[in-house]
Design a protein around this nucleic acid. Structure first.
Length: 111
DNA sequence: ATAATGACATGTT
DNA sequence: TAACATGCCATTA
């Protein structure tokens, strides 16, 4: 399984109404420093994964691609019930999802 | 096989 | 506390 496929799987596992960062996904994917890869993966292989739940470490939508408007992401997040400031800032303290730390154990995905 | 790229992260200044 | 510069890994050319 390629790295990007694992990323997709993880993104799909993000709970409803929660958001996570690239670093977290990369870590769960097995590449703690592969945050940048996550971005590229989502850009090319979005599939049906909730890419709008993935944001950078600052809780800010770094999407500069005109193909993926921040406005769209903001709308989607709001649909999830997540509060997004006018600056597209999300409160990671509340909505930040770091891989089901409690029930964790599914981070293995597959190998 | 080597070099360049990318929707970040972390460490310093 | 905020902003700037450098590093990282996998993928693609």
């Amino acid at each position: 399984m390629n790295f990007k496929d694992r990323v997709i799987q993880i993104v799909k596992k993000i709970p409803y109404g929660r958001v996570t960062t690239y670093g977290t996904i990369a870590t769960l994917a097995g590449v703690p420093r592969g945050a940048r890869l996550v971005g590229g993966v989502l850009h090319f292989n979005i599939d049906d994964a909730p890419w709008h739940r993935v944001i950078n470490r600052h809780g800010f939508i770094s999407t500069k691609c005109l193909e993926h408007p921040k406005a769209l992401q903001k709308t989607l997040l709001q649909q999830e019930g997540i509060v997004v400031n006018k600056d597209f800032m999300v409160d990671l303290r509340k909505y930040g999802w770091f891989g089901d730390e409690k029930h964790l154990g599914d981070s293995q995905l597959e190998k």
